[in-house]
Write a protein that binds this DNA or RNA. Structure first.
Length: 432
RNA sequence: CGGGGCGUGGCGCAGUCUGGUAGCGCACCUGGUUUGGGACCAGGGGGUCGCAGGUUCGAAUCCUGCUGCCCCGACCA
């Protein structure tokens, strides 16, 4: 992509509403534009990153055996009356009336709808286990949206729902998602720690929040320091096998959110030099909630002995848009964002230091074509800005590698390669 | 929902107390000189000062109501 043809509205000055670093950088680097409190447009660069995160989540869900579909943003109030949550959910739910005075709502989550889909088609235990997920925009009318995309009202969430014939089978499904989450966050360059969590209005008795430690996080958390360096299950992990050992290993070390903690318990479980009391960003949560929805909504299957039983369910959320903010919180410096390779909007930023100079243009144009043909996604700064501005822009938007060519390099047939993260530079012949 | 703050050109702000031609920096446009870490000179365009009402000869400025946004707290998959 040539920058001269792209839409990258970067800001030199920080809009005053942005308090935390990820919000500031997202506005300055032209990733998002606020449209109302907690509601954002995704500008091209931000949307590109969002799609990369989405794709990683998708690949790991698929690997763990979940199946993607897509449910609508608008739901019918009747469906929510079946579970009893239409009245229980409160003001966070955005309620809408259509032209026929039908009561609708903008979905804050999809347990009811997925249960409705399940009960319409699935009759037999032989069709289980089943895990269905989607990535869809949610709306929760937060009292106080804040921190940019981290606590928006409209946000993109991946939510998966598992259906099993028994609690034992449901825990196996839970474990698959647990392991998938460990892998998902790792691939995005995040260290996310699963912590025992409250189940909240979704209900149930087994739940973990996946937390990225950050001073700007909204939750207080307590955990064992060894969890920060625990190895993540690799590509060879068998999602059709027994994962309980991995989960048991991870949950053997103390980790809990502030709502769940007993200080005496924490102190008993973790030696003093291993205690971490910090703040964290919740980037995902897993729940097992049994028959909370299947029972009132009549989602049953026939078992091998011919009886009908309500299915045991779990739900598993990843805050896709929030993850993007968390990555920036975890990976930036004074000059801007530092994207992990796996989610970077472009692989390479190619900087032409003197656009309009025939030799420099020729060298850059040629290299741009080569890199692009080699399968790299290149943002080519072919504008007539001055070098200082180009360097500042490249650092701000944070692509992992910068390739810099000016008149001197063009004459010598050399390009300077800069690693955004380390700042290391080396000069290489362009032919390579 | 309780408390606090803010709304003046695309962004950041001054001007409001004490009413009297709407300003500054950046950005943008034109011409020129420039180009290895956010250039310089000259010229130029763009704002019914959040909205409505009131006071006044005259309102960005004073009064009333409304609205939007931000921060702290409470709340919260």
């Amino acid at each position: 992509m040539r920058l001269s043809q792209y839409f990258l509205p970067i800001l030199k000055e920080t809009p005053k509403e942005a308090e935390i670093v990820s919000h500031r950088l997202m506005l300055r680097a032209g990733l998002i534009r606020q449209q109302a409190a907690g509601i954002y447009s995704w500008l091209p660069l931000g949307y590109k990153v969002l799609r990369k995160i989405e794709q990683i989540v998708r690949e790991e869900q698929d690997r763990a055996g979940a199946v993607e579909l897509l449910m609508p943003t608008i739901q019918s109030a009747d469906l929510w009356r079946e579970s009893g949550r239409y009245d229980a959910y409160g003001k966070e739910m955005l309620r809408i009336t259509d032209r026929h005075d039908r009561e609708m709502l903008y979905g804050p989550t999809n347990e009811e709808m997925i249960t409705e889909i399940f009960r319409s088609y699935v009759r037999s235990y032989k069709e289980l286990p089943l895990n269905l997920y989607h990535m869809q925009w949610k709306f929760r009318d937060e009292v106080r949206p804040r921190f940019g995309i981290m606590r928006g009202r409209e946000f993109l969430m991946k939510d998966a729902y598992s259906f099993d014939v028994s609690k034992e089978k449901a825990v196996e499904a839970y474990n698959r998602m647990f392991v998938a989450y460990l892998r998902t966050y790792k691939r995005m360059g995040l260290t996310a720690i699963p912590m025992r969590a409250e189940t909240g209005p979704i209900g149930g008795d087994l739940s973990h929040e996946f937390i990225v430690l950050a001073d700007t996080g909204e939750s207080g958390v307590f955990c064992h320091a060894d969890l920060l360096n625990k190895p993540i299950p690799g590509d060879d992990v068998d999602f059709r096998g027994d994962l309980s050992g991995i989960v048991a290993d991870w949950t053997s070390l103390y980790a809990a959110t502030e709502d769940m903690i007993e200080m005496s318990e924490f102190e008993a479980a973790v030696p003093e030099d291993k205690r971490i009391a910090a703040r964290g960003i919740e980037v995902g949560q897993t729940f097992y909630f049994g028959t909370k929805y299947s029972e009132p909504m009549g989602a049953t299957v026939t078992t091998s002995d011919g009886t009908d039983v309500p299915v045991h369910m779990g739900s598993y959320g990843v805050g896709v848009s929030r993850v993007l903010g968390a990555i920036i919180e975890a990976s930036h410096d004074d000059n801007g964002i530092i994207w992990p390779q796996s989610v970077a909007p472009f692989d390479v930023g190619l900087i032409n230091l003197k656009s309009g100079d025939a030799a420099t243009d020729a060298a850059c144009d040629g290299l741009y074509e080569q890199l692009t043909n080699a399968g790299l996604d290149v943002l080519y700064d072919d504008t007539d800005q001055r070098p200082g501005g180009k360097f500042a822009t490249a650092d701000l938007i944070g692509v992992p590698w910068q390739v810099i060519i000016g008149p001197r390099g063009a004459a010598a047939g050399e390009a300077e390669i800069k690693n955004r993260k380390t700042g290391e530079r080396e000069t290489l012949p362009i032919a390579d």
